[in-house]
Design a protein around this nucleic acid. Structure first.
Lengths: 124, 124
DNA sequence: GCTTGACCTGGAGTGGGCTCCAGGTGGGAT
DNA sequence: ATCCCACCTGGAGCCCACTCCAGGTCAAGC
């Protein structure tokens, strides 16, 4: 590796991203990550770009995007700049789903809170 | 059934609650629903109370409570009024998790939105 | 020079939450 | 009367997203 280019060991990436080592390998296997570079001993060495991409993955996962759709997104990214409009469309659709998810969560949360209030009134 | 007591056929409950018939049967099997009453032919007839309870289930499910915990809650409800404090505790803990969930979702959503903005800037 | 520990592989196993199936019954509309 | 459709049961199957395992390699520290 070139000096000055920061690389990360698997352990460091686990630390940084919160994904387990098995999950990282799994993501690479299914093609959500491109093949990760290796050192002489065959051990993974992640680049800054890999870690950045994993950050994106983390956001999408945490907001409930299924793996199949993240794969689709990964594919678009690989295909280059002419897919940017498609990526926008994909992310916008996702954003709307997240919005709906938050709304539903909030709505159901108030029901839960009302139930708590009701129980409090009974108990006091 | 007594006249004036409203009962629901499985199909009506599916309609009302949005749970599939299979899911309703599954919930009964695992004890999340108490044994549902039957007509002469052995078909389920849900009471108003059953449907109300399913509404609670729907809220808890939609806010991400695992089935095991809903079972615990169902157990508390069955045990009677002396468990109300426990139910409050359970629901409050859940409420806090929902809050955290919403916060996380919102935070990750802004990242997604920033990504969209970035792509927009590239494309325009 | 030996141990420890981080890492490797391919493949099997897990857990949660349903969902489907085969084979059968009963009741309401035509 | 007959058809169809909603419903029944026990049990198997499915999907998703990991997670674990056995058996092996290398590097560094004691």
């Amino acid at each position: 590796m070139l000096p000055g280019v920061s690389v990360y060991t698997p352990g460091q990436v686990v630390e940084e991203t919160g994904f387990s080592l098995d999950t990282l390998r799994y993501y690479e296997r299914i093609g959500l990550l491109e093949p990760i570079g290796r050192n002489a001993a065959g051990q993974r060495r992640f680049t800054q770009a890999d870690v950045g991409w994993l950050g994106t993955i983390r956001c999408l996962r945490d907001t409930g995007m299924p793996i199949a759709e993240m794969l689709r997104f990964a594919e678009l990214v690989r295909e280059g700049d002419h897919t940017i409009r498609d990526r926008i469309a994909l992310l916008e659709a996702h954003d709307r789903r997240v919005e709906a998810q938050v709304d539903n969560l909030r709505e159901k949360q108030t029901v839960v809170q009302n139930k708590i209030s009701y129980y409090r009134a009974v108990v006091d």
